[in-house]
Design a protein around this nucleic acid. Sequence first.
DNA 1: CTTGAAAACGGAGGATGCCTCCGTATTTTA
DNA 2: TAAAATACGGAGGCATCCTCCGTTTTCAAG
Lengths: 184, 184
Amino acid sequence: MGKEMSAEQPKTRKPRADTLRNRELLLSAAAEVFRGDGGSLEAVARKAGLGIGTLYRHFPTREALFQAVYAREVEILERRAEEDSLEEWMREALRMMATKRGMVAALAPVFEPESCFISEQSERMRGAVAALHARAVAEGRVRADVTSEDLMRVLLGINYGPGADPDRAGLLLDVFLDGLRPRS
Amino acid sequence: MGKEMSAEQPKTRKPRADTLRNRELLLSAAAEVFRGDGGSLEAVARKAGLGIGTLYRHFPTREALFQAVYAREVEILERRAEEDSLEEWMREALRMMATKRGMVAALAPVFEPESCFISEQSERMRGAVAALHARAVAEGRVRADVTSEDLMRVLLGINYGPGADPDRAGLLLDVFLDGLRPRS
DNA sequence: CTTGAAAACGGAGGATGCCTCCGTATTTTA
DNA sequence: TAAAATACGGAGGCATCCTCCGTTTTCAAG
């Protein structure tokens, strides 16, 4: 808080090339390893052809890695939120999550309910849901006492909760959405 | 299948006293350790003042231990299933689960979606839900395409899924139950 | 191009947890 | 009380986590 007064341009070096390259390597390795349900962090580093230390420097925690892998998909969802209806969108999200189910298992070891991966960076995702939710509420299409975060909860719960079955998730979402309509 | 023909009384010894005592010690230690979210099996054995080997002999797997701790609560639910309505019962189950949320986190490390703790021994719990569900379907009070196992999934999902919030679970269940009524 | 310092890499190693195995101790039965 | 049955304890092999620091790579100033 003392030395650097000026904005932020003067003292920044260009980011090193290997850093960016390795980050990419790690992300794709992680996606592949985690897809197989239950890979270790060391396995990720190995598959990327990098040291374990490098992995930890890029992604200090399990969650950080997970979120980074997910980032791109979230962006897509974010974009779709502008044209889809709430129901369409939730179904789309459902499909997307189904393909990555294994990651949660891999994530589980250090899972803390508090700093859950819903929060933090995926603020953007919540933003997308919030927007859709607000619209739907304004149009009187959904109950007002259910929050957009509740929607996330249900989505994640039927996908990743204990005993979740991707084949049933669609139907369960249908039921929930039915119940979501304002009381008649 | 060859030697012992008669029922099961003749060749059974009396169960050893230490076995029963230790089983109790382990169960209460487990309940306490797991409540604190994220305890190790070795911590359980330590708190019980017993060797890790003893723990494993009593409860060969994480799930076995978890289920044993839960057994009593399940019995209660089983009993209530005979007098409660489906909705009342699910709310009761909700309350019960809320108190034990940490255990799922502790269970997670070896979590296999397949041999999930829903299945296996807690067959009885599923039986209870199944009975309630069958009754409700017969009376035309719920959609027939949702199975009793789906009900468990939702219950567990909104309680233990990522981002679950015990304070919201009740409302979410309400919504789901609303949607569960047959399409008009 | 050279060069030195900033930045990043690699992986050894300490810590912890899982689970098995078997020598020792306890309990039961005769 | 002694033999047989049963249970106990915890060392040890293996896997993973994560940190720490000596070595290597990259950048940019001269």
